[in-house]
């Protein structure tokens, strides 16, 4: 009996050590009750923790808030609303900035 329990623990430890970090984070999030959401960001899918605001997203991307504008599902998110705008599953978000042009 003791031997079986030990084998089980060894196998589990082995399995966990082989898992990529992202899966670990996923497990941890589930364990503490967080959910993840997937949004379309500048044309590419991206997974974020649920309850992420537009302002947090910009900060996480390492972008200066004053230099970018955010369009969510076709509507511009006013700067003053970025802190209170929560992103939800399936949102389509574009982060826009100035580039060279005539």
């Amino acid at each position: 009996m003791a031997q079986t329990a030990l084998d089980f623990l060894r196998a589990s430890a082995n399995l966990f050590s082989r898992m990529p970090t992202s899966v670990w984070i996923g497990f941890l999030s589930l364990a503490v009750g967080f959910r993840m959401i997937t949004i379309c960001l500048n044309g590419e899918n991206r997974t974020l923790p649920a309850a992420c605001t537009v302002a947090q997203l910009i900060a996480d991307l390492g972008l200066g808030a004053r230099r970018v504008a955010v369009v969510r599902n076709g509507e511009v998110v006013p700067r003053e609303a970025q802190n209170s705008t929560l992103l939800v599953e399936g949102d389509c978000v574009d982060v826009i900035h100035m580039v060279g042009g005539g």
Binding site: L61, L63, A69, V95, I96, M98, G101, G102
Partner: peptide, 20 residues
């Protein structure tokens, strides 16, 4: 000076200079 507006390149190296 005139500028255009486009999506930020999120795959650009961190700290890469931009127009501004």
């Amino acid at each position: 000076v005139t500028v255009a507006l486009r999506r930020v390149n999120l795959n650009a190296p961190k700290g890469e200079k931009t127009l501004l």
